[in-house]
Design a protein around this nucleic acid. Sequence first.
DNA 1: AATATCACTTGCATATTGCAAGTAGATTGT
DNA 2: ACAATCTACTTGCAATATGCAAGTGATATT
Lengths: 135, 135
Amino acid sequence: MKKEYRSHCPINFSQEIFGDKWSLLIIRDIMFKGKRYYGEFLNSEEKISTNILADRLEKLEDNKIIIKVSDVNNLSKFIYTLTDKGIDLLPLLLEMIVWGAKHDKQTKAPPEFINRFISDKESLILEIKKNLHFD
Amino acid sequence: MKKEYRSHCPINFSQEIFGDKWSLLIIRDIMFKGKRYYGEFLNSEEKISTNILADRLEKLEDNKIIIKVSDVNNLSKFIYTLTDKGIDLLPLLLEMIVWGAKHDKQTKAPPEFINRFISDKESLILEIKKNLHFD
DNA sequence: AATATCACTTGCATATTGCAAGTAGATTGT
DNA sequence: ACAATCTACTTGCAATATGCAAGTGATATT
């Protein structure tokens, strides 16, 4: 079960963990949209298929980006949350949002969000992080 | 030849363009290692295969992240360089380096590079950008 | 007790990846 | 001038990954 990395370049390391079309969307859903349940991820705009979702959740959990715990209010449900390692992806995701918003003419990124990030990175990061701790 | 995006979320937009295991490694090679030729990319540590390299270079060019021009000193060679859109990926890549270096115990990222980025982001960004303009 | 919900799993067709070998034009060496 | 080499790919094919649809088993609701 041990993972062999192609190299220990930090960019390669990162890409081997979340360099696919779906992983960061799951992290986005938890980080920015407050999603926590399997069914919520399934309903995201990009329509991930259920087997891919199951696979990515498992890989993200294996890589300690997220943790899965059962929901005490409903034992047939599980709650997925970010670990500190996952929360550490926030600055990267914010830069990705800035890049995507700048270069997609049809972007849906709210301009006030982008402007706030550009003019006041640190306070935005702190505010988002604060909202991630429900526990 | 028109591209349909699954959504115009900026994270999804970004991932549809470079969310795979190889694209950002090519960009890394140009940005941080000064590589410009097909053969140089082929020789990178992670050993990309030639058909995948050809495919990714074409996609990166289609997406205006890189441009391909023939080498006036050797007509059998082409020079690949970053566009402004590609150079705009620098902050994202730097955050990726920080994350990868922090969470990979075996990282090869030089600590002084990480420390300089953390303590003095903007000057490091400017310096790297300056070195990208050979033209 | 029957029905619905939830988080997956399975089967299968299609698409992508990766290895190895081949090709065509430009360059270099003799 | 000619052959060998270099350079940037292309092609064939096997292995892997993806995505759609349907199924399953445990819990929850009525």
